[in-house]
Nucleic acid binder design. Sequence first.
DNA 1: CTCACCGATTCCTCTCACAG
DNA 2: CTGTGAGAGGAATCGGTGAG
Length: 296
Amino acid sequence: MKIDDMDAFVAVIRCQSTNLAAEALQLTQPAITRRVQNFEEDLGATLLDRNTKPLKPTPMGLRVYEQCKAILREIDSLRELVANDGAPSGTLRLGVPQTLGDVVLLDALAQIREAYPQLRTQVTSGWGSSLIARMENGELDAAAALFPPGKIFPEGIASQSIARMPLRVVTAKGSAGKRSYKLKDCYTRGWVLNPDGCGFRAGLQRALSEQGLSLSINLETFGTELQLGLVANGQGLGLVPEPLLQTSRHRSALDVLNISDFKPQVDLWLFHPRYLGNLQEPVELFGEVAGHRLLG
DNA sequence: CTCACCGATTCCTCTCACAG
DNA sequence: CTGTGAGAGGAATCGGTGAG
């Protein structure tokens, strides 16, 4: 049994296509087909259901896939063990949602560059869930993202909650009116939120639907600062983690609404593969700086 | 029915190990 | 050094399938 064959099989399942797997492994499609066939022959089992489109694993193929991922991770860690006898070098691939990027990246990248001059950094932006998926695919070395406390993440990924913070509902200065609100009171004002896929938005939507209310969106846009600016201009209500509100240049133009039946919280999570090798220290520094920038 | 796409197969070339 | 066989990968091609 060959590791290359196993690698090809895992790539096919991951990409759901032999063509894409070939592209990922920088081979041609026939090479992938043959490797997977060799692997199936070695194991004496049919691992792919070739009658489906896209290509899917058989029930046994799925079990083999899970086992293969664990084996390949072990092999990676073995290679790192040998290769990591020195200062961190190469490329550190980081993922952050845009919400956090504005706040943490400048400092984090500067400190990593200063501490590990031989290390190149590469940053990817996206929703937390897509960053985790990319990490599972081996495309990222670490990611910081905001998720609700107690969330369960995929087994192959190490997750660590760095800090907990409240989410605040904000409105334009002077438009708050009465001192205490309920969620249904906000209904008519409408919201300025991230596009669909954002965890904050999903949490709000859940809370509203529990009360039989629907989410009324005034504006959808990326970027916390832009959203808070729009809220300050009276375009609707905003939902933002407390630390980002405190550091916003629009803070003085905003009021926080006290909503008695909606007290959402969010954790800052640091994710990385279980085996980091010589990237362990830079990743820890990244988590440390991110936590520090958010919570002071 | 046609076309595009995808996976499998065939045939060829290249590389490497090994025996003589 | 040379010939041979095995193994791996690429180009071309075939066949199946789904969308229009």
